[in-house]
């Protein structure tokens, strides 16, 4: 229990959850075989819109985070419409440019406070703490202090968001839409010939990815007290891409694994924290050369399932005897 309550570990787990949401955002776009380098830009839209709504308009966190998602989704639609009809490479370039433009705009607008960024964003833990003390739990409960309960609640919220997204992705994957997406990823022209509306599905997944990235941005803003334009630069876009490349983008568990590994890496290895970007770059090159499908692919997942299935069969057969 102490392990979970340690604020340092708790913080790492929270960032893992945020990164997992970001990983899912790029997984959604990649599921039609397109690469978006603008997810950091969408994340910053989500973060700024939700932070400003909470600070200036006093909106509840849930509302402001969702508004951030909607705003990013609309932006994605605007960019996606002209670009997505073309080859995949155009989307990568246009979204890379979009990320740069969002950064420039955020740097120059008054309401975003330029290069200084926005600080004093009410954090979820503080708000949960206030609400708990209003219910009369100001002295804590069950040996836990108010602060600890609030932190655990935040963690629960984040895990719930990840769980809902994973559930959604799995449901989509096994549906008619999921099969259409897989067909588009395998061969766009063949999919079009089979009567799949390729442009519609590509725009849909691109916008969904943007919405999810913005939600991650909104949640992150209400976790860390401060956001600035530097948090959402090109490096963040590459980091998000890395979650999917390392973990694998065939199955939704891939980006989750990637997010967990890459969030834990700098904490476990001090050396890795110092040379982080270089390691990231090397991972991208090595993965593309030796295992372009990522650590977890459909085959590995099937293999793991078979292994687990066999051991479960063994368990049940040995238990009665």
């Amino acid at each position: 229990m102490d392990f979970i309550l340690n604020p340092y570990y708790l913080q790492i787990v929270m960032f893992m959850a945020i990164n997992a949401v970001l990983g899912i955002s790029i997984y959604l776009t990649l599921s039609t075989g397109q690469l978006s380098l603008g997810n950091a830009g969408f994340m910053s839209i989500g973060a700024y819109v939700s932070a400003l709504l909470t600070i200036k308009a006093g909106a509840p966190i849930l509302v402001s985070v969702l508004c951030g998602g909607v705003a990013a989704g609309c932006m994605a639609l605007l960019i996606g419409l002209p670009v997505i009809r073309l080859q995949g490479i155009y989307l990568a370039i246009a979204t890379l440019g979009f990320g740069e433009v969002v950064r420039v705009i955020v740097l120059n607008l008054k309401i975003t406070n330029g290069a200084l960024g926005i600080s004093g964003i009410p954090s979820m833990a503080v708000i949960f703490g206030k609400q708990l003390s209003e219910v009369g739990l100001s002295s804590g409960m069950g040996g836990l202090t108010l602060q600890q309960i609030a932190n655990l609640l935040v963690l629960l919220v984040l895990i719930a968001v990840v769980a809902v997204l994973v559930f959604f992705c799995i449901r989509v994957h096994n549906s008619r839409v999921g099969r259409a997406l897989a067909a588009i990823k395998a061969d766009e022209k063949a999919a079009e010939v089979m009567g799949i509306d390729v442009t519609y599905y590509k725009i849909l997944m691109f916008c969904l990815g943007a919405v999810v990235a913005a939600i991650a941005g909104g949640l992150a803003a209400h976790l860390t007290f401060y956001i600035g334009p530097k948090d959402f630069a090109y490096h963040r876009a590459v980091e998000i891409l890395l979650f999917a490349v390392l973990g694998g983008s065939d199955v939704v568990w891939g980006p989750l694994l990637g997010a967990f590994l890459l969030t834990a890496l700098p904490e476990v290895l001090r050396f890795a924290a110092e040379y982080r970007e270089m390691i990231y770059g090397a991972i991208l090159v090595v993965m593309m050369a030796f295992r372009p499908q990522g650590l977890l692919s459909t085959q590995t997942l099937r293999y793991i399932k078979e292994k687990l299935g066999r051991s479960r069969v063994n368990d049940t057969s040995t238990q009665p005897g």
Binding site: G33, A92, E277, M278, G281, I283, L284, M288, A289
Partner: peptide
Amino acid sequence: LRRRSVSHLAPLISTIGVSIFLES
């Protein structure tokens, strides 16, 4: 990447890796 058939995104991602490596 040229030795085997990979998706058209692979060289893009691979050179992004080189770019971030060189920058740091």
